[in-house]
Amino acid sequence: MSHASVPAGKYNADNPAPHHFGHHFESAEHEFSSAKQGMWLFMVTEVLMIGAIFVGYLLFRLRFPEAFHEAHKELNVKLGALNTVILIISSATMVLGVTAAQRGNNRRSIGMLITTIFLGGCFCLVKYFEYTHKFHEGIFPGGLYHFEGLTVPHAPLFFSFYFVMTGIHAFHVVVGMCLITWIITRIKRGQISKEFFTPVELVGFYWHFVDLVWIFLFPLLYLLG
């Protein structure tokens, strides 16, 4: 697409380049709505992907309810709740960042996006402490589990799901932080304007989706007894 041909240095966040839409589209609006549709479809694939692990979780939960009940007590509800709050706030800052970009207020947008990355980093930090604490106690997934404090049969399976589900989620958070960094550099290079903010909006979609997954993970893993 055309933005690649913008000469470096000429445009910046305050003076963005004019947008030329792809030659196979009729208008910028046409291009934008197509990109949005593509992103929605991608979200659907993510739902199916995460959905399969949820099905596995439910299946084993029904099969070994006692083990899952006992094992979930080992999780730190306070840290989980803290992370939930962090992600909800990050969704709010993301919305503000996207709206600012849509209105052409690129400086404000950059500020909000940096805050979002910061909150994502906080989430990962909390997760890091949770994980290392578990490892320290000997709580590992499945076959590597050697925690003395909880010996209910099949409890290690609960932690397999815990680590896989939160691990895949955390991976998505890190990818999201990289994507936000990418759109910040694009804003700084003057490639985002009131007329063209597709990447910002789509990364916003993604970020909200990742938050939404956590909204399901938190009660399923931490709260449900």
Binding site: F140, G142, G143, L157
Partner: peptide, 8 residues
Amino acid sequence: VFKVGIFD
């Protein structure tokens, strides 16, 4: 890699 055991 992690011996999660979901299918084992």
